[in-house]
Design a protein around this nucleic acid. Structure first.
Lengths: 195, 195
DNA sequence: GTTTTTCAGAGACCCCGGTCTCTGAACACC
DNA sequence: GGTGTTCAGAGACCGGGGTCTCTGAAAAAC
């Protein structure tokens, strides 16, 4: 017989796999916790011993977005202009949200981030995204391209908020292409942080 | 006996009043539909003949925000500089959200705006807020203060989105003062739309 | 080896938003 | 006034997220 710990880890994995498949097939709202329990041949009890909520397990899907950012930074280290880097980064981000994750998933995340219990991982300043943006803005300041009346810290957090507004609007609407709108927004933001 | 219509209107009003009191006392999440029915001496059936959801009745509270914008515009018609006008408008808005509505209510609205069924009244371009912002930006363009490579329509909608990002972040966090953050954000946005 | 403790997990249960059905009074028509 | 029709409203019911309790096997204690 396997140890209790091993068994538990296996159960966790079965639940996670079943959930991912179901979310991909049907979207967050149309998957019930009981469906996940059935598909993974476990139970609600098992589900809630391993995850705190249906939303929490959904979030697992998004852990990889940080890898996306880190990969982007590595691949584009050669870009010298911070403005250009930021532009490319965010266009890639917009495409990732639109084409990889999908509007519905992003909507689910943005909704649940406002639940009182959740702490907002999206705007956690330790995430790679922030670090990357901040580094680029610092770089731009040192190069004399960006204004220095505000610290890089402030500029980057304001930048990120504005971007989040774009994402929020996009995922709450039926229409409008996130990439096109993003370009407009960035043309204002970039002009706003230039020296 | 009163007419059926009169009776219905009275019921509607009783429900609305009870709901407003309860929401103010306990906040959206801690008020159940059955509480509203009980307090108004009606029933769930009555509630749902007059309102489509618990959220819909909550929104009634916010209809007045449009009056706030119109009142602001009337009172500040003397401000000649569009940049100054926009700054004052949004600071007043931030205070209104923070002090009149409260973070929790704003959070509830921003959450529910992402429900698939809702159409987003917050970013409806016909609302007074947009009209006001757009008019100021047009004015600034005519005065030669603001850039004209993008139409006022675009500039104002990007502006509004960035502002929404600020509100979204604020109501999803425990900390951070919306007014102070807004000033930082606007210092970037204004610089970004200047000629 | 036997007894005690722990703990993953099954599933009955609770809670609450929203729906459905049924009732009785107001209205329309004669 | 009598008869059929409409519709506001009462409240049973449903669906689904999340909780509680109980069980039986693994781990610990002896």
């Amino acid at each position: 017989m396997v140890s209790r710990q091993q068994q538990a880890q296996l159960t966790r994995k079965k639940i996670l796999n079943a959930a991912m498949e179901l979310f991909n097939e049907n979207g967050f709202d149309d998957v019930r916790v009981i469906d996940i329990a059935d598909k993974s041949k476990t139970s609600k009890g098992a589900f809630y011993t391993h995850f705190n909520s249906k939303y929490e397990i959904f979030l697992e899907k998004f852990k990889e977005i940080d890898e996306f950012y880190l990969a982007f930074e590595k691949q584009n280290a050669a870009i010298d202009s911070p403005a250009l880097f930021l532009e490319r980064l965010h266009i890639a981000q917009a495409r990732y949200l639109r084409d990889e994750l999908g509007k519905d998933s992003v909507r689910t995340i943005y909704m649940n981030l406002l639940r009182p219990s959740e702490q907002n991982f999206v705007s956690d300043p330790n995430r790679p995204y922030f670090q990357i943006v901040k580094r680029q803005i610092e770089k731009g300041q040192h190069m004399g391209n960006f204004r220095t009346d505000l610290p890089a810290e402030s500029l980057s957090s304001q930048w990120a908020k504005a971007i989040r507004g774009n994402v929020y609007d996009w995922c709450g609407h039926d229409i409008f292409d996130i990439e096109e709108e993003l370009k407009l927004l960035m043309s204002i933001l970039l002009a706003g942080i230039k020296a």
